[in-house]
């Protein structure tokens, strides 16, 4: 295997590391030789991750990224990094007339503003090494609409745009920034929808030519974008969705 595809001796911050794609990334990156800085909301789940993760030199930070003060606290705790992947995410399926600004703001705080704050902290404190990489977990919802999913979709569209903007700003320091637009991945966050027997579920399932995704499918792509194997990639967005978006 080409050494460029390894994360050996790289320190990678993973937000949302206690669940779903973030947790899978933390475990997978550790197997690939990374020192993982795992940030998550639940102390109990951080302990579970700690017990399961392979290798050494990892650190675990408890933070609720829906709270601004906790984002600041996390930012202050971040060590010198070679990479950052923003997996923290929150979902909401609510038609606009039943939603309200507070609920929509909460989605944006977790999905978008926490990424902004962490990147700001990394950039201001110069905690990201030259040649480092940043990846934002975006979604096909940034480009494709589903009923009641506007707050989530809009927050992910903002996140994809942030990747392009940060790619430009951080290029002078050779820091690369890309986003991943994932289709529906079976995680605790999507469990309620998958078990909802919603009228749209069966139709939605048929759009996925390869079925719904697993967290491991996305973690492998994330590893590539954080590794030196993607050294010439920045400002990009890669879709990984089992064929969801290639059809009319």
């Amino acid at each position: 295997m080409d050494a460029a595809f390894s994360l050996k001796d790289k320190t990678i911050l993973v937000s949302g590391a206690t669940s779903g794609i973030g947790r899978e990334c933390a475990l997978y990156f550790a197997q690939a030789g990374a020192k993982v800085v795992a940030a998550g909301r639940s102390a109990e789940k951080l302990d579970e991750l700690k017990a399961e993760i392979s290798g050494g030199g990892h650190c675990f930070i408890q933070a609720d990224l829906g709270e601004v003060c906790e984002i600041e606290s996390l930012a202050n705790s971040i060590p010198q990094l070679d990479g950052f992947i923003h997996c923290a995410g929150a979902d909401m399926r609510m038609p606009i007339k039943f939603s309200d600004r507070a609920a929509e703001r909460k989605i944006f705080e977790v999905n978008y503003f926490s990424a902004v704050e962490i990147v700001r902290a990394i950039v201001k404190s110069r905690k990201m090494a030259r040649g480092g990489a940043i990846v934002f977990m975006s979604s096909v919802s940034a480009n494709f609409a589903n009923a009641g999913h506007f707050a989530y979709g809009n927050s992910k569209a903002a996140l994809s745009a942030l990747a392009r903007e940060m790619a430009v700003e951080l290029a002078p320091r050779k820091i690369r920034v890309n986003s991943i637009s994932a289709g529906l991945v079976e995680t605790p966050m999507t469990k309620a929808f998958l078990e909802s027997d919603s009228p749209e579920l069966e139709a939605d399932r048929k759009k996925y030519l390869l079925g719904y995704g697993k967290a491991a499918d996305v973690a492998r792509l994330a590893l590539f974008l954080l590794s030196d194997a993607s050294a010439w990639m920045t400002g990009g967005d890669i879709t990984i969705d089992g064929g969801y978006s290639c059809q009319k």
Partner: peptide, 13 residues
């Protein structure tokens, strides 16, 4: 016209 939006609206109401 009953669809996913209608079901979501019923739940929210």
């Amino acid at each position: 016209g009953w669809d996913s939006l209608a079901a979501l609206s019923a739940m929210a109401f």
